[in-house]
Design a protein around this nucleic acid. Structure first.
Lengths: 191, 191
DNA sequence: GCTGCTTGTGAGTGTTCAATCACTTACATG
DNA sequence: CATGTAAGTGATTGAACACTCACAAGCAGC
């Protein structure tokens, strides 16, 4: 009753698919509460092979985090492209909108929340700082906005994390609507 | 070689001290990566007794989180007292300063980060929402500031969490200084 | 003293999970 | 077909940990 043997692939290709699945799986329950076997199952390979492809659970998580930041940077960069030539404040606002759109994805934002919580592991803290270094630098350089505006941009990003992780979007309470005001709505699908 | 028996105390008093220690211990490594035995050791009682005083590990964490929010609300309330009669924006800014001072404490901010990461546990998400409901409501009512200002206040609070958890304060890099600009400095203590 | 209640613990139990290893299976090349 | 190499797995191990329970030790009232 084992699954039919998958078509073989190179280790590199397999690693790439596992990383992509790992982002989603780790995003659900975080680093410590996610067994490697869950990622393996999502990637449809055996746990043993995951350990062969990555340097332990930590290596797997770090790869997922790296992938996460790569995708976020791509999103922001793309957004900056679309508002080229606009005033700094406008560019930054558009980037903020693009980031808020990721609330629908959930995965990329949640993984950052989990990584922050696991930042007592030095390697994770290091990867996190590396990621934010790139995000802040990109936001500043591509918008040309002054430091305080960039700081506020990042702060709003962190607020997005709170909204997603605590499940605030769509809550009727006034305090929740106050926090989510101006944020992209998640499952407004077909509109 | 067992520790000399502690002076007896009532269960309620013991619970209170355990909760206070639990805030610190959970703040270090988070919910999943912290064994109950670590909290017990910090409180100098046996793990078995912790399970008797609280409803499982989850009950212990929830009590710690509640305690955390109580202390934060007290801090904010106190700050509002000190700036009574000032303009809304000023009151809010003073509250922000008071919150940023907690960066030195670390514990209260870190516990929120960990709670957010563990918010896939329904009870933790619920407690978190309850806490933020009170924080937002207090900030709005005591400052009288408009919604967007309160939203920004909370966003800056989340930025504080990032700074503490990722260890950004004191980093020489430009992007880090951009993020920490205006935040209270932690251990500028005795030299 | 004795009795009964509360505080507190030592010694377990069962489970979960990271990591390893010996092994098998597919494919490329001669 | 033979043979080497890389992909992939089942079985297992050892440790950590949440939680339990039978029991001990202190303190009240008699």
């Amino acid at each position: 009753m084992t699954a039919p043997p998958l078509p073989r692939s190179t280790a590199d290709a397999r690693r790439a698919t596992v990383v992509a699945r790992a982002v989603t799986v780790f995003a659900r329950h975080g680093y410590w509460a996610t067994p490697v076997a869950d990622v393996a199952a999502a990637a449809k390979i055996s746990p043993a092979y995951v350990f062969r492809l990555f340097d332990g659970k930590l290596g797997l998580f770090l790869a997922a985090l790296e992938h996460c930041f790569t995708r976020i940077l791509a999103t922001l960069d793309e957004s900056a492209d679309r508002s080229a030539g606009e005033a700094p404040a406008v560019v930054l606002e558009r980037m903020g909108d693009a980031y808020a759109q990721l609330i629908a994805d959930r995965d990329l934002l949640l993984l950052q929340v989990h990584a922050l919580s696991a930042a007592d592991v030095p390697e994770i803290a290091e990867a996190l700082r590396g990621g934010y270094a790139r995000v802040v630098t990109l936001a500043k350089e591509r918008s040309g906005a002054p430091d305080p505006a960039v700081q506020q941009f990042i702060a709003l990003g962190q607020l997005c994390h709170l909204i997603v992780a605590a499940g605030l979007q769509g809550l009727p309470a006034g305090w929740a609507q106050l926090l989510t005001a101006g944020m992209a709505h998640p499952d407004r699908g077909g509109g």
